[in-house]
Write a protein that binds this DNA or RNA. Structure first.
Lengths: 242, 242
DNA sequence: CGCGGGTTTGAATCATGTCAAGTTAAGTGG
DNA sequence: CCACTTAACTTGACATGATTCAAACCCGCG
């Protein structure tokens, strides 16, 4: 054990207890790279509602999300808005090989970030195929998610959309296996307005569908934000996926 | 020149005239790799309507699309269908690091493919960071496209959806700059049913919106498939993007 | 206590879906 | 060459799910 201490000590203190090192982008880095990146990294907190990445501003930093929920939005010239992605803890935030497509990232809840300056991170990407592979995989995962939501947006009814969204939250909130397999309980990370923007609906419709699910005893809502699902199977049945 | 002949000869005959070598995935390969991949490659044609990649079958080949249009679809258990992506000439078809998400690829028109066996291609991916980077970029591009369509699906009206789709086709059909900047003329690569599946509409609505655009003199349609747009700006205005 | 943001609820309206009937165009076989 | 069939598309009348507009509600906070 003592023999290995040098290496263990080499892991930056901040990273030692960081989940991102195990499951996030950083899992693709070796010790040396981790130290180098950590030197340039900065932990920061953003209030709910804060803009993390705007259409206007140049992107000068990439980041890992340590906690909280980030919404990626697009807006039409006349103000109509659509959330095109949600990112959770340990997701990577940023746009390597930045193409044109204008996209806003906004904190949906309070968010804690571990961010790196653009140049340092891009240099590391060049040098580390493993890192780039890890990023590629995340992009593929996000692509799958985006396509799943296209089905939801294009082909599901309002109730099915809401049920699908609740299931998404349940999946992210649960340490799987922790609560009973068919039970879930979580805080809604989005306001009704945000849910509407994600599902291509209006606030009123979102609200109506929630009360409908409540009336059908599929969910219970406390304090407008805490959702309890006693039987996930019934919720799944309402989500249209089978 | 003679000095270089050896190298030029080394480019596989098939590839020499192939656009994919310049603009597609293959542009990331050096000569040696190109030869190796070409040895394993196979050119093939698929009828319109043929399934290229099914939920059921394992994927045993990757491919470049040489010509034609491929639609990527997802289907809900009750039969509702959504097209979640369109791929055109020189796009890469396949799912490296295949995750779960069930996806169908079907030829929307007659399609010509240049395909490679799974193992050969994956081995090359392992060995060539440049190739993986190229694939990563395509994934990012597809992600951008998917997100653009999420806005269309979630927030646009039926007319705007149709206009947006026509603009997409125009962009892909035109050798840019060839026809006048504000003029376009192209064959619809999708049937009304496919357009409906892409836009989250019904065939009837698609048809009605097309005749509406025709009545407004924004487009002309000949033979049900040939579309002529005399002023792209008017079409853009109807697409909701500005 | 009253104020304000977020949410719920209600009634009227509208866009899109549904169902059904027609049209067009391209075969196919007599 | 002309009926006949068929598939894809268009058009019309009607039904409905979601939006819109408006009002009430709830709850934390000054």
């Amino acid at each position: 054990m003592a023999f290995n201490n040098a290496r263990i000590d080499a892991v930056p203190t901040l990273c030692a207890s960081c989940e991102g090192r195990k499951k996030g982008i950083c899992s693709a880095l070796d010790c040396e790279q981790l130290v180098e990146l950590a030197k340039a990294s900065r932990k920061s907190t953003a209030e709910s509602g804060a803009t993390l990445l705007g259409e206007t501003e140049g992107i000068d930093r990439y980041a890992n999300i340590l906690s909280g929920v980030v919404k990626l939005t697009k807006t039409l010239p006349d103000g109509r808005q659509q959330i095109v992605g949600l990112q959770f803890a340990l997701d990577f935030l940023g746009r390597p090989y930045c193409s044109e497509s204008p996209l806003n990232a906004e904190a949906a809840t309070e968010v804690v970030l571990c961010s790196f300056p653009r140049e340092a991170f891009e240099r590391m990407m060049q040098e580390s195929p493993a890192l780039e592979r890890r990023l590629y995989r995340q992009a593929l995962d996000e692509l799958d998610e985006a396509r799943d939501w296209m089905v939801t947006l294009g082909r599901k009814t309002a109730t099915e959309k809401i049920a699908s969204l609740l299931l998404l939250f349940a999946r992210h909130a649960e340490p799987p296996e922790k609560t009973g397999r068919h039970f879930a309980r979580f805080e809604l990370p989005l306001s009704r307005a945000d849910m509407a923007d994600f599902l291509g609906l209006t606030i009123e419709t979102v609200s109506r569908q929630l009360t409908r699910l409540r009336n059908e005893k599929i969910i219970t809502i406390e304090n407008n934000r805490l959702v309890i699902v006693s039987d996930l199977r019934r919720l799944k049945a309402r989500a249209g996926n089978g």
